[in-house]
């Protein structure tokens, strides 16, 4: 597991109160009970403050699995580091 994946899992663990060992990269919304619409917002807000990124409004509801979170965050952090260069 790379560093980004690990960080993403830590955020999931904090937001949904599940230990990292009990999370899997293959989890989707259906695998986590407390991942409801409120959970979605908390998750997005936590990602934004953890990775210093900002999701577009339309992107927020597309984060429906752990893998998709990682992909989006990777994309968003790449964009912002490209801007710096």
């Amino acid at each position: 597991m790379n560093e980004l994946e690990q960080k993403v899992l830590t955020v999931f663990s904090k937001v949904f109160n599940i230990s990292v060992e009990n999370l899997s990269l293959t989890f989707t919304k259906d695998d986590i009970d407390s991942w409801d619409s409120l959970g979605q917002l908390q998750l997005i807000m936590s990602f934004e403050s953890e990775f210093d990124i900002k999701f577009k409004t339309q992107e927020i509801n597309q984060i429906t699995s752990i893998q998709k979170s990682i992909d989006y965050i990777k994309h968003l952090t790449d964009v912002s580091s490209n801007n710096v260069n």
């Binding site: 917002l41 807000m45 409004t57």
Partner: peptide, 14 residues
């Protein structure tokens, strides 16, 4: 946070 206002009906940011 305008995004929150439109998708969550709450205007507060984190």
């Amino acid at each position: 946070d305008e995004r929150m206002h439109y998708i969550a009906k709450s205007h507060w940011s984190l």
